[in-house]
């Protein structure tokens, strides 16, 4: 089981990092997602891998799994899920407004509309 989990984390991270280094926004987002999957499994494994052990107190349990990493993973999943949704929206809006989905282009210093600037 250890070998399986470890190689899964490795493959997910490698694929994630490769995709993050691509130049279009869609592969970058997929890469982020892979990397956040990898970190979730990794956090989970840091509580040590056990089978059939309850994480919360129950009568008749001889041994327990570490509950803390499971709580950490929940928090991490919620945050990474929300952030993925945000970056998808950002990439879409950016594509619609600039007509390009390349992430490595210099940010154009577009003339902002007159009302954009504060007039005080």
């Amino acid at each position: 089981m250890e070998v399986l989990i470890a190689s899964a984390i490795g493959v997910l991270s490698a694929a994630g990092i490769y995709l993050i280094l691509r130049q279009r926004s869609f592969p970058v987002i997929i890469g982020m997602t892979f990397l956040s999957y990898a970190v979730n499994v990794f956090l989970f494994a840091m509580g040590r891998l056990t089978v059939d052990r309850p994480p919360i107190i129950s009568s008749g349990a001889a041994a327990y799994a570490d509950p803390l990493p499971q709580a950490l993973v929940l928090t991490a999943i919620v945050i990474s899920f929300g952030m993925t949704a945000l970056i998808v929206v950002l990439a879409l809006r950016g594509y619609l407004e600039t007509g390009s989905d390349r992430v490595d282009e210099g940010i154009p210093k577009l003339p902002e509309p007159a009302e954009e600037r504060l007039t005080s």
Partner: peptide, 9 residues
């Protein structure tokens, strides 16, 4: 604005 969206991403 497009500039903020690009920088924001």
């Amino acid at each position: 604005g497009p500039r903020r969206l690009g920088a924001g991403f």
